[in-house]
């Protein structure tokens, strides 16, 4: 019997497209938390990602440019975020600044409602999303795991929805897998699990629930070995995506024998 190469069975040939653009990988990397640009660059390479988030802040003219130069050199696209914004107004202005600075109309929209939990402010988020879509942005909103809000964001014209698994940087994984699955089942745009991933199994779980991609920062950048974790989480995203496509067996409470009971020898 001839065995086929493992790649024959892979679904990796189905690339993810968001806002009309094809992404190289189903893992989006957050650049926050890496202790050096060298480490970030190594993690980008190990992850295989094609899209890396950045934040917008006041710049010192003596230190400008280096992050963008590193990311350009790696051939990845940047996804500016509106982290730190607590109002729709600030988030819209920050997105406009990012568009001017980085020449991209993509934005990871964050409007935070509370400094302790960093949970999204649903009302401000929807207002900002509507304004940015009208202004021509490709909006990827960081949102709660509320299926109704996800639908409202999609209706507003967002190119994806990015529900949290658990609070940013908490590493608690996916606290409400039912809601994430529900969002995935009903969404007409790609669902990206954003925030909460603690380790590789969380990323695989997100993909098994039906997410199109995973966005991950702290789980990689703050791991003991960030580059090794970047590789592990990328592998988990692929594994979860493949498993979702392959179709898992249903859960049952009692065993179901995998060896036949017929033909048992009489050993009495």
């Amino acid at each position: 019997m001839q065995y086929k190469a493992a790649e024959t069975f892979s679904r990796r040939s189905e690339p993810l497209a968001i806002g009309g653009r094809t992404l190289r990988s189903r893992l989006i990397l957050g650049s926050g938390g890496f202790t050096s640009l060298e480490l970030l660059a190594s993690a980008v390479e190990a992850s295989g990602t094609g899209l890396v988030t950045v934040a917008m802040r006041r710049v010192d003219p003596t230190a400008r440019g280096s992050l963008i130069e590193v990311l350009d050199g790696l051939g990845v696209r940047v996804l500016p975020n509106t982290a730190g914004c607590f109002t729709a107004r600030d988030a819209v202005r920050t997105a406009q600044l990012a568009r001017e600075a980085l020449q991209t109309d993509w934005v990871k929209l964050e409007v935070i409602g509370d400094a302790q939990t960093l949970l999204p402010d649903a009302t401000e988020l929807l207002i900002a999303a509507e304004q940015l879509v009208n202004d021509g942005f490709v909006v990827l909103p960081y949102t709660t795991d509320d299926p109704i809000l996800a639908r409202r964001l999609e209706d507003a014209g967002c190119a994806a929805v990015m529900p949290l698994g658990s609070p940013i940087g908490s590493g608690m994984g996916i606290c409400n897998p039912y809601n994430i699955a529900l969002i995935c089942e009903r969404a007409g745009v790609p669902v990206v699990l954003d925030a909460g991933v603690g380790t590789a199994s969380d990323a695989a779980f997100a993909m098994e629930l039906g997410c199109a991609a995973v966005l991950c920062a702290s789980a990689i950048s703050r791991a003991e070995e960030p580059v090794a974790m970047a590789y592990a989480i990328a592998a988990a995203v692929t594994a979860g995506h493949e498993a979702r496509g392959a179709g898992r067996i249903p859960r049952r409470r009692l065993a179901s024998a995998s060896s036949p009971l017929e033909g048992m020898p009489d050993l009495g």
Binding site: S31, R57, R58, V78, P80, L97
Partner: peptide
């Protein structure tokens, strides 16, 4: 005047 650019984050 605010002068901003990209830093690591997100």
């Amino acid at each position: 005047v605010e002068v901003v650019g990209a830093i690591q984050g997100g």
